[in-house]
């Protein structure tokens, strides 16, 4: 057996070219050298920088002169009264905690709801006549139902709390980023009234590319009072395409009430066209 193994080994060695072992050794050394070099000071390790995450508050207050909302514009204002408004924003951890608070009173409400269920069994003892046992059973059932409902409420509250906690743990790398517009130049924390109105009216406008013919464009003047209610509107220029113009009328009627009040009564001249839709 041993001799056959030796023979096989000798056969195998005869197959190798002369100098094969040296070549194999050199190859292994070179392969080992690569990771050694990689971790040597000759190739310094670069730390992977996480991309910045911006938290955008979509329900910011509508203001007349929004401030810059860029992270580098943090320390902008010192003069105005707006500053205290900006202060709470650097504490994002506190903010989300504040959110669940309004949920708590809601959570408390259901409890009293469960309580009024109890009085129901009370009137039942009144007809103490014959079906007393049935009524006792009913009252017991009612109590059980109330318990189940209370438990369901508790579970809901617990789920809400857990969600709020999870949200509070999310940290923004740019803690001091002010609330404002990217191109803001004013001194108020919030979003521009113009941008907000533009966004809202655009959301109300429904028009399909199957309805599009040519390049329609219309101009409408809309006046809102401070409360965000449409006072009047007027077509300055119609597109000539009745389907397009009717879609605008629908959008205007749907935009009768803005979701938030404006800083002051405002007028807008809005040009509607399909440039972005047709370019796609």
């Amino acid at each position: 057996m041993k001799s056959s193994r030796k023979q096989r080994w000798q056969q195998l060695q005869s197959v190798f070219e002369p100098g094969f072992k040296q070549m194999l050794l050199a190859s292994i050394l070179i392969h080992l050298l690569v990771p050694i070099l990689y971790y040597s000071p000759l190739f310094p390790q670069r730390e992977i920088v996480k991309p910045p995450v911006y938290r955008v508050n979509l329900v910011n207050k509508i203001v007349k002169n929004p401030q810059a909302g860029r992270p580098e514009a943090t320390v902008v204002k010192k003069k105005t009264k707006v500053k205290p408004k900006a202060k709470p924003k650097p504490k994002p951890k506190v903010k989300p905690k504040a959110k669940p608070i309004p949920a708590k009173p809601k959570a408390v409400k259901p409890k009293p709801k469960a309580v009024p269920v109890k009085p129901k069994p009370k009137p039942k003892p009144k007809p103490v006549v014959s079906q007393v046992q049935d009524k006792v059973r009913e009252s017991a059932l009612d109590k059980m139902r109330a318990k189940v409902a209370a438990q369901a409420h508790k579970d809901k509250i617990a789920a809400l709390k857990a969600a709020a906690l999870a949200e509070s743990l999310i940290e923004s790398p740019i803690v001091d980023a002010p609330v404002g517009m990217a191109d803001g130049k004013g001194d108020e924390a919030g979003v521009s009234a113009i941008a907000s109105v533009q966004e809202f009216i655009q959301q109300q406008w429904v028009f399909s590319e199957y309805q599009a013919a040519g390049k329609p464009e219309a101009e409408v003047k809309m006046a809102y009072n401070r409360e965000g209610t449409l006072l009047h509107y007027k077509f300055i220029k119609k597109s000539g395409n009745s389907v397009f113009d009717e879609s605008l009328t629908r959008a205007i009627v749907k935009s009768k009430h803005l979701p938030q009040a404006l800083p002051e009564a405002m007028e807008f001249e809005i040009v509607f066209n399909l440039k972005d839709m047709l370019d796609k």
Binding site: A193, I194, V197, Q198, I201, Q202, Q203, Q204, W205, V206, F207, S208, E209, K221, S247, A251, M266, E267, F268, E269, I270, V271, F272, N273, L274, K275, D276, M277
Partner: peptide
């Protein structure tokens, strides 16, 4: 003055493309 105070906006695409 009223003309000057009107803010000018361009909306170049609808918010929704299917009619509910």
């Amino acid at each position: 003055s009223s003309v000057a105070s009107a803010a000018r906006i361009e909306i170049s695409a609808p918010g929704e493309q299917t009619i509910p």
